[in-house]
Amino acid sequence: MNFEAIRDQLEIYKAEGKKMFTTSSFQSHSIVLLHIISRVDKTIPVIFINTGYHFPETVEFKDRVAAEFGLKTVDLRSNTPKFMQRGPDGRLLFTSDPDHCCYLNKTQPVDALLMQNDIWINGVRADQSAVRKSMKVEQKAPHGAIRFHPMLDWNAKMIYEYQKEYNLPKHPLENSGYLSIGCEPCTRKVDPEMMEREARWYGMNKTECGLHTDLVSK
């Protein structure tokens, strides 16, 4: 979808009285959707899923982008305190059960958010993974909500061209070799032979946190 099509769809949702929000990881490629939203409606809440494990650079970048684009950001945190996020061996879950760690810190909080909203504007792209390639522009989510994927048909070249056209800021860790940036314990630099998302949960046979697998209704 181009800017005009995204704008028109958001205006339709607004005219229908739909309550909308977007989530963002505040990576460089995520900034394009945020910039588009800022051009259409700055009042749409931007949810930052604050797991407590983000790089300090990501948190600083989030604040910088929000101020520059005039966006309303909201930190969303788990209801389960960190001292309770441990396995039977006492280790923090990101070391022993990363799926459950993602569930407590990402999936569960967003699932609760879907109960209060109608439209989840989500920046997934089909070229990012096999899971995302199977998605549709509009897709059912739990609790009667709708996932809206306006960037689904965008590719890395289109993202780069938009970033260049509007001189958008880049995540400070990108120049250090980080291209897919999530929680610090589960993110590594990208090697030349690796796909972008292989740098996440490296060696764990895991490429999704659950937001785009568990929070999709059949």
Results as ranks from 00 to 15, higher is better:
K140S: 11
S217C: 08
I49S: 04
D99A: 00
K218Q: 13
N117C: 04
R64E: 14
I47A: 01
V46N: 04
M115T: 05
C102L: 01
H100R: 04
R86D: 12
H212Q: 01
K72V: 12
G210Y: 03
P45R: 01
K106I: 11
Q139A: 15
H143I: 05
K136Q: 14
T187S: 11
W120Y: 07
R86H: 12
N117K: 01
W154L: 09
L34C: 12
C101T: 02
Q163V: 12
C209S: 07
E138P: 00
E196A: 09
R64T: 12
R125P: 15
P88L: 04
A112S: 13
E198W: 07
T207S: 12
I121D: 10
I47E: 02
K18Q: 08
V110N: 03
W201C: 09
K42M: 12
M158R: 08
N79P: 11
R147N: 15
R91S: 05
K106H: 06
P185D: 03
S176N: 11
S176A: 08
G52T: 07
M20A: 06
H143R: 04
N105P: 06
S28I: 02
E196N: 09
I146H: 00
L215N: 04
L92Y: 10
G177Q: 08
K136T: 14
M1P: 13
Y202D: 13
L168V: 06
G87H: 12
R132M: 06
V40D: 05
Q128H: 13
S78V: 14
A141V: 01
T80I: 15
N122A: 11
M84Y: 15
R200G: 10
H212N: 09
T73Q: 07
F3M: 03
E16W: 06
E138R: 00
Y103C: 00
E198G: 02
S134Q: 15
Y178H: 12
L71I: 09
L33V: 13
R91W: 00
E165G: 03
E174P: 12
N50K: 05
L215S: 00
Q139W: 13
S30G: 07
S134A: 14
L33A: 03
I146V: 15
P169R: 00
G182I: 07
V46C: 05
R39V: 01
G123W: 02
T51I: 07
G52M: 10
P192Q: 00
L93R: 08
L168I: 06
S176F: 10
E198I: 01
K157S: 04
L215H: 02
V110I: 13
Q128S: 10
D63V: 03
V190G: 05
Q128E: 15
M151L: 15
Y202N: 11
N50L: 02
T58M: 14
G52N: 05
Q128K: 08
K14R: 13
G144M: 03
M115Y: 06
S25R: 07
N155H: 10
E4F: 15
S78W: 11
T51C: 07
K133T: 07
Q27R: 09
V65D: 12
E68C: 03
F69I: 06
C183K: 00
V74W: 05
S28R: 04
W120E: 04
K62Y: 11
C102Q: 02
S30V: 04
N2D: 15
K18G: 08
Q9Y: 09
T95P: 10
S134W: 06
C101H: 01
M151A: 11
A112C: 11
F21G: 08
Y53A: 06
L211V: 01
D63T: 08
S217N: 14
